[in-house]
């Protein structure tokens, strides 16, 4: 029995959890290949034109897994991972979009509804009952697997918080990379180096096809990057205290808090907001942060991406932005001296 996990959306946040969970249950896991032109086209053709690119890509990955011969496809319904907050409506209706658009695979979908009070998915085992029923697994085995998955996932988060980007953190948590080896490769912070706070959902930033690999482009320019998942939960929460109403989408809320964290943190020289064309939550969040960039005197740039994004355009924009930040920093240090 093979369960297919689409390499899209929250794969980039929960893969270590899901992989460990299924393998612990003795089920083989199959992951779709990194997003490529074929997968993207499959998704674009299958979806409503107006919807955002990460959802289109997700549909592409689901279809690709069907082609690859997975017996089951894991498409959880993300409802909530924090009390009083939700996921974007598109996440909540995603399994329905899939099962009604492709009725021939509807019977092969695993759709656990994820409703928990923390982003640790092991805390409410009842959401995995669907898997018990469909795959014939005992409750005890299920609990054991969840426990193990939780340990690995927490380890993954720990690596993220240390400043590792998600692919590295995943490899470290899953044991495919050696921590000692990794520690040596971290470059020491240099004097004239600039640090950018990059705001964006994990499924956009870490999908090199969607984000046009903006993170490695920045790395090549010798820019240090910080993203929201590298900031401890506690510090994010602190930023939101005293706000009359925060975002009611969990990850948008985290980005929102991360934005203010970056504004307040002295080591951050500027912000880049990477957002998908037509992203609903981001349209609000981006505007509020943009209006406040004046208050905090920190540059803020929006990069909007979709399936038509051009590489050269992006390269030119970020180069110009980084050059501007470097010049600003040099001027400031000269004045300071």
């Amino acid at each position: 029995m093979i369960v297919g996990i689409p390499r899209a959306l929250l794969y980039h946040y929960y893969y270590p959890f899901w992989k460990t969970y299924f393998e612990e249950l003795g089920i083989e896991v199959m992951v779709s290949p990194p997003t490529n032109k074929v997968v993207m086209d499959l998704g674009v053709k299958a979806s409503v034109p107006e919807i955002c690119v990460p959802i289109k890509v997700y549909l592409g990955h689901v279809l690709e897994l069907v082609n690859m011969g997975a017996d089951w496809i894991f498409v959880p319904r993300f409802v909530s991972i924090q009390k009083g907050q939700f996921f974007c409506p598109k996440f909540m209706g995603l399994p329905d979009m899939i099962r009604h658009s492709f009725p021939h695979i509807a019977s092969r979908l695993l759709i656990p509804a994820i409703e928990s009070t923390t982003d640790d998915l092991a805390t409410s085992p009842k959401q995995y009952r669907e898997i018990e029923e469909k795959l014939g697994i005992s409750t005890a085995a299920n609990k054991r697997a969840l426990k193990k998955a939780e340990t690995v996932w927490i380890d993954f988060r720990r690596w993220s918080l240390k400043g590792y980007e998600i692919p590295d953190a995943m490899a470290l948590a899953l044991g495919t990379k050696n921590p000692q080896q990794e520690a040596a490769t971290i470059i020491e912070h240099q004097q004239d180096e600039i640090t950018l706070g990059v705001l964006g959902y994990v499924y956009n930033l870490y999908d090199s096809m969607i984000s046009l690999d903006i993170l490695s482009r920045l790395r090549e320019m010798n820019v240090k990057v910080k993203t929201f998942e590298m900031i401890p939960e506690r510090m994010l929460k602190e930023r939101l205290i005293g706000m009359p109403k925060t975002m009611f989408w969990t990850f948008s809320d985290k980005l929102f808090a991360a934005g203010y964290h970056f504004y307040n943190e002295e080591s951050i020289d500027g912000l880049i907001h990477v957002t998908a064309f037509g992203c609903g939550p981001d349209s609000m969040l981006g505007k509020l942060l943009e209006l406040d960039s004046v208050k905090y005197q920190k540059p803020f740039m929006t990069v909007r991406i979709d399936e038509h994004s051009g590489e050269n355009h992006l390269q030119t924009r970020i180069e110009a932005y980084v050059d501007m930040l470097r010049r600003k920093k040099q001027l400031n240090t000269q004045r300071g001296a």
Binding site: V48, E50, P89, K90, M92, G93, D96, H100, S101, G280
Partner: peptide, 14 residues
């Protein structure tokens, strides 16, 4: 770009 209605739009063909 309405978030919920995009989901209903996807279901309408069915």
């Amino acid at each position: 770009g309405c978030l919920p209605e995009l989901v209903s739009q996807s279901i309408i063909p069915k």
